[in-house]
Amino acid sequence: MEHPPSPETSGALRQQVRRLTDDWRSAGRYTPRSDSWLRSFDLEFSRELAARGLIAMTYPKEFGGAGRTHVERLAVTEELLRAGAPVAAHWIGDRQIGPAILRHGSPELQEEIVPRIASADAVFCLGMSEPEAGSDLASVRTTAEPVDGGWRINGHKIWTTQAHRATHAYLLARTARTDRKHDGLTEFIVDMTAEGVSVTPIIDLSGEHHFNEVRFDDVRVPAHRVLGEVGGGWRQVVEQLSFERGGAERVLSSYPVLVELIAEAARHGADRELRSLLGSLVARLAVLRRLCFEVARAMDAGAAPVQRAAALKYLGNAFEYDVIEALRRTGLARDAAPDSVFGQALLASPAFALRGGAADVLLSLIARQEARS
Rank of each mutant, 00 (worst) to 15 (best):
M1K: 13
P4Y: 10
G11M: 03
A12T: 12
Q16L: 15
Q16V: 14
R19G: 10
L20V: 11
T21S: 08
T21M: 10
W24L: 14
A27F: 00
G28S: 03
R29Q: 13
Y30N: 05
Y30L: 04
S36I: 08
W37N: 14
L38V: 14
S40F: 12
L43P: 08
R47D: 12
E48V: 13
L49V: 10
A51G: 12
G53H: 07
L54S: 05
M57H: 04
E62Y: 06
F63N: 03
G64W: 02
V71F: 08
L80V: 10
G84A: 13
P86M: 11
A89F: 10
A89Y: 08
I92C: 10
D94T: 11
G98P: 09
P99Y: 07
P99R: 08
I101M: 04
R103K: 14
S106P: 00
P107I: 00
E111Q: 10
I113T: 05
D121M: 09
E132K: 12
S135C: 11
P146E: 14
H156E: 09
H156D: 06
K157Q: 04
Q162E: 14
T167Y: 13
T167A: 11
L171F: 03
L171T: 04
L171Y: 02
A173E: 03
D179V: 06
D179R: 12
K181S: 09
K181H: 04
G184Q: 00
G196Y: 02
V197P: 00
P201H: 07
L205P: 00
L205N: 03
E213L: 09
V214K: 01
R220Y: 14
R220N: 08
V230K: 02
L241F: 12
L241R: 13
E244C: 08
S254H: 11
S254L: 13
E273W: 11
L281A: 09
V282I: 15
R284N: 13
L291G: 02
V295W: 00
M299G: 04
G302K: 06
A303L: 13
V306W: 00
A310Q: 01
A310D: 01
G316I: 02
A318I: 04
D322E: 15
V323C: 09
L327H: 04
R328Q: 14
T330D: 07
F342M: 08
F342A: 03
Q344S: 12
A353S: 15
Q369Y: 12
S373E: 14
